[in-house]
């Protein structure tokens, strides 16, 4: 099973993006050979996160066997954020990680405001995925401070350093065993090195589809994993097996 662990589909009111209909995302997944996708908001990083999580929920409910939601919250409002995490996880049954985007949301992972959010995530068994690879608030080692403060929390680097900071993501993963790396937009040279040096059960695959759902986007990033010179077992873990285990997917 191939699981795309990083897509942003509904909404699109920012940066000249546009909303991607469920049918378009599913067609793109079919074309690329992707079975399931973890879906996150993009509008929710800027606008009312409860409303955006509702929009996300309605989106994935159109194809719940293939689309899995991961909600977002604004950690600057801890009470509302924790209540929303509980609602999304326990009432709406969202199995995806809490998706945070520090530089778009305007906070640093180092700030103490993340502590109550991390504690709630631990209690709910909810991994936290953060955008990474971008200064000034989303470098891999900044996100890694959260993993250091909460060694039982699963912290996912959403881009494994993107183009320029994959070496930092690799260092973070080696230092903190509770860090998971999502290979999504990582420099291909970096993907090779990360796969060679990090235990295979700690790697995920994502495409960022939705931040541009054009034909070929998912094929390109899926190809970056499929063409790696590693065993089929390792590829199967990166492409789906780990996601099934980490997020409890059937």
């Amino acid at each position: 099973m191939i699981v795309d662990c990083h897509t942003h589909a509904p909404g699109g009111r920012s940066f000249g993006l546009s909303s991607v209909p469920v049918s378009d995302l599913l067609a793109a997944m079919d074309s690329a050979g992707i079975d399931k996708a973890m879906v996150y908001t993009s509008d929710g990083f800027f606008f009312d996160f409860v409303a955006c999580n509702n929009e996300l929920y309605a989106f994935v409910q159109q194809c719940p066997e293939r689309l899995i939601a991961g909600p977002t919250v604004d950690p600057r409002y801890p009470e509302a954020a924790i209540a929303e995490m509980r609602r999304c996880r326990l009432e709406l049954g969202m199995k995806g990680p809490l998706k945070l985007h520090p530089w778009l949301q305007g906070f640093s992972p180092i700030e103490p405001l993340m502590d109550p959010i991390a504690e709630a995530a631990l209690e709910l068994g909810m991994p936290i995925m953060m955008h990474d690879g971008t200064p000034p608030y989303s470098t891999p080692l900044q996100v890694a401070t959260l993993a250091a403060r909460f060694p039982s929390l699963t912290v996912i680097l959403g881009h494994s350093g993107l183009r320029d900071l994959w070496q930092e993501a690799l260092a973070a993963a080696k230092r903190y065993p509770n860090i998971i790396l999502c290979l999504c937009g990582t420099l291909p040279l970096g993907i090779e090195r990360i796969v060679a040096e990090v235990e295979p059960h700690r790697l995920l695959f994502g495409t960022d589809a939705g931040f541009g759902a054009a034909p070929g986007n998912q094929e390109y990033r899926l190809g970056q994993i499929q063409r790696l010179a590693v065993s089929e077992e390792v590829k199967a873990l990166i492409l789906g097996g780990n996601a099934q285990r980490i997020f409890g997917l059937s």
Partner: peptide, 17 residues
């Protein structure tokens, strides 16, 4: 290349709209 996979860079040519 070789910081990227040359074959995948070429593959994208067909997808430009």
């Amino acid at each position: 290349a070789p910081l990227t996979d040359l074959a995948l860079e070429v593959m994208k040519v067909q997808y430009w709209q």
